[in-house]
Structure formats: C-alpha cells, structure tokens
Design a protein around this nucleic acid. Structure first.
Lengths: 227, 227
DNA sequence: ACAGTACAAATTGTATACAATTCAGGTTTC
DNA sequence: GAAACCTGAATTGTATACAATTTGTACTGT
C-alpha cells in the first residue's frame, strides 16, 4: 500500500507555503517586486490570513523580505548573496564529507555508489537541466545524511533552494564533469581518505561558484541581476 | 524618558515576534507544551491574526513546532538537538576563524583586543550569567563579522539563540577559563596562524559541549530534559 | 517646468466572527 | 475494569470587515 489514498488534510498554510516557496525558488516573482496579497490570495484560492502566515515563514527562511507597512517583496538577485551562500555551502559540505568519512557504514557508501551507477546508465540526451540539478542535489544530500545531523541537513536544503535558480541556469554543460567529480569524492570516501575527500568536495563546489559568477557577469540573467 | 510615550512604529507582528522569541529562548514555555493562542494573544495585547504570523516565523526558525489542527508547541529539550547545534556551531566558527585570519584588517583585530581588555578590567563578582554569556557571544560575533558573510552571521545568531538557555545554566564557573581561551584565539589570529586559531576555536567550543552534556546528565535541568 | 499638496484608490494591518476540528468527561458496553 | 463511544466545551482554521497607511495622480502656485 502506498501513500496515495490517504485523506489529504494539508492545511491551507502548508499548501500555500509550499506553492509560494516553489514560486520564490524559480523567481516567478521578479526580484524586488512587491507581492500583492489580495491578488496572490485569489490566484491560489485562499484568503489573506493563511497567505500571510505562509509569507511570514518564507521571510524567516530568506526567500522574501518584509517591510513594515509596505508588505512582502521578492528577494533581490544580489551576486553578493549568491557568493555568501556558496561559501556557506562549501563550509558545510566540506565538514560533512569529513564527518561522513568517519561515520558512514560501508553499506551506506555502497548505496551511494549504486545510486551513481544507476544514474549514469539511465542518462539520456533529453534530460532537462532541472532533473540534472535534482540528481546532483540528491547526491549531496545523501552525503549530508551520513553526518546524522538533521539540523545541518535542513540548513543545506535551505541553501540549495535559495541558489537553485542559478544552478538551473548553469547546469548546461557541466553535468558530465560534475558526475565524474561525484565519483571521485565517493572513491575517496570509500578509501576513508578524509583529507582528499574534503579537498575534492571543496574544489567541486568552488568550480560551480566560479561558473556562476562567470555566467552572471556574461549576462545569462542580466534581465534580472541588479548588483 | 522611557519607552512608553514614543510613537511606536513597530508593527504588532514584529513586536510579538521579538517578545515570543525571548520567551522561547528562555523556555518560558515548557518543552513540548502547546501554545494557547487566545491566552497568549490576550497576555501580549493583540489578536490572534498577527500572533499567528509571528508564531509561523518562529516555526521556520526552529523555536517552535507546528502540528496541523493542534497548533503551536514549544520545542522539546532533546539532547540530540543540542548536540547537533553545537556541532554546527563548531563547523561554522572554525571555518570563520580561518577566513578571519586571511581577511581581517589589523585594526579590526585590535578592536577585538580592546573589547577583551575592556571587559576583563570591568568584570566584578556580581556579574550575572546572562551578562557573561552575552559578552561571550559578542566576542564570537565579532570574529564572525570578519568573514563579511552576513548569511553566516545570521545563521550563527540563530544557533546561539537556540542554545542560549543551556549556556545560561552552564556559564557558572567557566567564564574565567573561557576568557583566557578567547585571548589565545585572538593571539593566534593576530599572528595570522590560521591552523592554530582553528584548533583553539574547535577545542574552545568542544569543551563547552562536553560541559553541557555533563551538566544535563547530572540533572541540572532534569525537570525539563526529556531524552 | 517643477516642487508641493490634496485627495481618491489601492493596499496593508488587525480584530472579529464563525466553521471545523480536537479535547475532556462521563457513560455505555462487553 | 478497560475499551469504545458519545457530547459539549475548548481550540484552531480561515474568511471577512474595517481601520490605518501608502500610493498614484491630478491640481496648484511659483
């Protein structure tokens, strides 16, 4: 029996939170744009009360900003913020891969190996960027799970969501190299070589950051980028 | 003149958020206890609408939990969660002190030196635990600020708030040793010795965690502690 | 032209009403 | 005696009403 037939009793707030979060991740709101509450409430089929509760959560998570008396706004596209988030991501994941090296069971590493093998064979030309990013993310989340630190996992999820838009743009010609790097990181983990696993992870992420800054400078999303 | 007569520009939501956050930090709500919305709203002089908006923010920040149809609850006192937060704190701060070593201006390090000197001379027997913790926190925030990473600063603030209750309990006989360790960390920073600064910071925090786990095991707050 | 102003429209801020759900208790049933 | 089951009270979930504030715009005087 699967999860399907269960009575769907998600509250409005949770549903709205998830839907609006998706919109924020993909920049359905334009950067800096004010969120019109009555309009959004009507579009999502709810009233302003649960809507504002959801918006307040998203403010706390860094997807929106809030100005007293003026309302909720989409976060800006600041390259500084992207940089900071990538720096944070690096720090967390490098530490995570070190912890994983000590704590992971052999079988867990084997699971990740299987996951990678499975995907490389199933890859086709038609795979979308979003799917590639999702796959990439899953690898990193699997490593993170080995730390047994749910707070850090949650944090990493938040960071990933906030930079996802840029990863979608950037994933074009990177997934092949990226997959090789994943394999290398895992190899170091299986060899229980924390030092080189950490180094590989650091370079892996730094390279992505370099690409992003390059891409934004070259105008991939110049329509949006402000500073 | 005190706070009363000035036109209070802050919205209800922001005021409620701050007040309830203080209550959550200090466990004015008992662990696991449900937050009664009408009662709390009455006590804080507002209606349920802005109250719930504030509560939703605090859920997103990890101070409260939310269960569909049952309402908002004070977070539990799980030693596992404390451990995870301390581990996260260690990772962030060790990385921060490394970054600070590269990036800080000499004058900024001198400022921190002055801050420490100032406080050691101003310390008296009557200083409360809360003040000592606040002073301790400020040192760490000053180091963090040297990374120029506002996202990491914000995160560290959240982590500190969530473990503050335990630091209050635990600060009793530690501040003297703690201050010496702060001086050592700063010395390593001034010498631009990232490796030893990182090592000192790691030990500094690990020792606190050891004390906390010890303290909780010995029953400092057995009234509260669940698992 | 342009800064300032007045005023209407749009929008946010908050209280309240009521529906939906959960909870507490006593009662019945086995 | 314990589990299942009612039923009214308490509590949460959400829509709506209206007050407070902000915004857009036409108008005014210089």
């Amino acid at each position: 029996m699967t999860d399907a037939p269960k009575k769907e009793n998600k509250s409005s707030v949770v549903r709205l939170y998830e839907e609006i979060k998706e919109m924020a991740i993909s920049y359905s709101f334009k950067p800096g744009e004010r969120v019109n509450e009555v309009e959004l409430a009507k579009n999502l089929g709810a009233s302003r009360t649960p809507l504002r509760e959801a918006l307040n959560r998203l403010v706390a998570e860094g997807f929106l900003t809030f100005v007293q008396g003026r309302g909720f706004f989409c976060r800006e596209l600041k390259s500084r913020e992207i940089y900071e988030l990538y720096q944070m991501r690096t720090i967390i994941e490098v530490a995570a891969v070190r912890l994983a090296c000590e704590q992971a069971a052999d079988s867990e590493l084997q699971d990740i190996q299987n996951f990678l093998d499975d995907r490389t064979s199933n890859f086709t030309e038609g795979t979308s960027n979003k799917e590639l990013v999702a796959h990439d993310e899953e690898f990193h989340h699997m490593i993170m799970a080995l730390t047994r630190n749910s707070e850090m996992s949650r944090l990493l999820g938040n960071v990933y969501d906030r930079i996802k838009f840029f990863r979608w743009i950037d994933m074009d010609s990177q997934h092949a190299k990226s997959q090789l790097e994943h394999a290398d990181i895992l190899k170091a983990l299986i060899a229980r070589d924390a030092e080189s696993a950490a180094k590989l992870m650091e370079n892996h992420i730094r390279r992505r950051l370099d690409q992003i800054t390059e891409a934004t400078k070259e105008g991939y999303s110049r329509i949006y980028m402000h500073s």
